[in-house]
Lab assay of single mutants.
Amino acid sequence: MEVRTIKVFTTVDNINLHTQVVDMSMTYGQQFGPTYLDGADVTKIKPHNSHEGKTFYVLPNDDTLRVEAFEYYHTTDPSFLGRYMSALNHTKKWKYPQVNGLTSIKWADNNCYLATALLTLQQIELKFNPPALQDAYYRARAGEAANFCALILAYCNKTVGELGDVRETMSYLFQHANLDSCKRVLNVVCKTCGQQQTTLKGVEAVMYMGTLSYEQFKKGVQIPCTCGKQATKYLVQQESPFVMMSAPPAQYELKHGTFTCASEYTGNYQCGHYKHITSKETLYCIDGALLTKSSEYKGPITDVFYKENSYTTTIK
């Protein structure tokens, strides 16, 4: 009895394709271990004539594949690729409408935090270190965002349907971005203890939790000093293409032309909904596939993004 075979390709990165001759009487799992086709788990399936010449994702289970996976995804987590594939199996079914010149995501599976993050990423200057993220990001900007969303979920250790947080998501993504040249110098002034300067680099240099107003941050924000008295913390120097200011959701007025974009969060910790506000020729609110415009805006804002380049204080 002759062994019926077909020729397929296996890959971990969709760049390096490895030619395989597979036995049609055995499952993919018996031949390769966990195997995925377009995100779908085909591990328990036997090869079919229609699979001839198709590319299958496999887990990096030998040295060659491990090197290829690390170079593309910059992670050695053995569960990463499987999590990416199972997320992709959902995100490829989502709709990605162009809204006001940006790629958004039609609401499904509690994905409003991903839509808000995706919209924000198209408006701030950011370059990702893992080629996987950078490639998928370019495709997302062009309207094909399924891979990018699935990668975000995998890097953030999230599953489809789980509630997510924009600030946490951005923080994970910033860790995989090139923020080497970003720098922030802060000064804390206390009447009792004097003053202390701190220099922050990388992710810490672009994120701040405690106030939404970048102007206020430049002037000074009140913080408790270690001595128990009130101290003032203010920005001395900022070198970065953008800054992200966050605070627990509270009524906040966004003035046209003073910011790049913002995240609105309605609801409580267990259950809520994100919308995205962007400042173009007027203010726009993007909620999944829905767009509304207004000249002014007041609502429960939790993150505001500002364009920056270089700032030095005039406070002496």
Rank of each mutant, 00 (worst) to 15 (best):
S50R: 12
E168A: 09
Y214T: 02
P131I: 04
E144Y: 14
V189C: 10
V188N: 07
P224S: 12
F70N: 08
I277M: 04
P248V: 10
Q175H: 08
N309L: 11
D165H: 03
Q122R: 02
R66I: 13
C190Y: 01
N268K: 08
L186T: 10
H276R: 00
S294L: 12
P97C: 07
E2C: 15
D23F: 15
N110Y: 04
T43H: 12
L179R: 03
A177G: 06
S79I: 10
K46W: 14
E144F: 10
V8W: 04
L173C: 06
V21Y: 15
M170N: 04
A177I: 05
Q237M: 10
H256F: 09
L119P: 03
G288M: 02
T302K: 00
H276K: 00
A154W: 03
T116Y: 03
N111C: 02
G272K: 00
L65K: 15
T120N: 14
F174S: 02
T192Y: 10
A140P: 04
K183A: 07
E144D: 13
K106I: 08
N61C: 13
Y84A: 05
Y138A: 12
A108G: 06
T75M: 14
Y284H: 07
E2L: 11
G194Q: 04
Y297Q: 01
R139I: 11
L37G: 09
S246E: 01
K106R: 15
V203T: 12
P241K: 10
T232W: 11
C156P: 02
Y137R: 04
M170S: 02
K233P: 01
Q195H: 15
Y28H: 05
L65H: 10
V188R: 14
G33L: 05
G288K: 00
E68D: 09
S86E: 15
K316M: 07
G161P: 04
G82M: 10
N187T: 10
A177M: 05
F242W: 11
K183N: 06
T103W: 13
C261R: 00
T258L: 07
Y73I: 02
T199N: 07
T278C: 15
C285E: 08
G82Q: 15
L126C: 09
G82A: 15
G33H: 04
T232S: 08
H273F: 01
P130K: 03
Q237I: 11
F242C: 00
L65Q: 06
G101A: 06
D135N: 12
T159M: 09
V12K: 09
L153R: 02
K93T: 15
T19M: 13
Q134Y: 07
F56H: 05
G161H: 04
Q222M: 15
Q238F: 01
K201A: 10
E281Y: 01
D38V: 13
D77P: 02
L283I: 13
K219L: 12
K255N: 08
A132W: 02
L163G: 08
D62G: 11
T226H: 15
K106D: 07
T192E: 15
A40T: 14
H273Q: 02
Q20F: 11
Q216C: 12
I277R: 00
H48T: 08
L121S: 06
M170G: 02
F242D: 01
I223M: 12
G143K: 04
D180T: 13
T11N: 06
Q230N: 12
G101V: 03
M170C: 12
Y155E: 02
N157P: 02
P130G: 00
D23Q: 10
M170L: 09
F80Y: 04
H51D: 12
K46Y: 14
T199C: 14
V304N: 03
V166W: 03
L17S: 09
L200A: 10
N14M: 06
Y269V: 09
N157I: 04
C285A: 08
F128V: 01
Q196L: 11
A117L: 07
I6T: 14
V42Y: 15
Y306V: 00
N49Q: 07
V12G: 09
N14S: 10
F305K: 00
F9I: 12
V21M: 15
A146G: 07
L290K: 13
E52L: 13
P249H: 02
P47I: 07
I315P: 11
Y265F: 12
K316N: 11
N309P: 08
K95Y: 15
M244A: 00
V67H: 11
F242E: 02
V243Q: 00
Y172F: 10
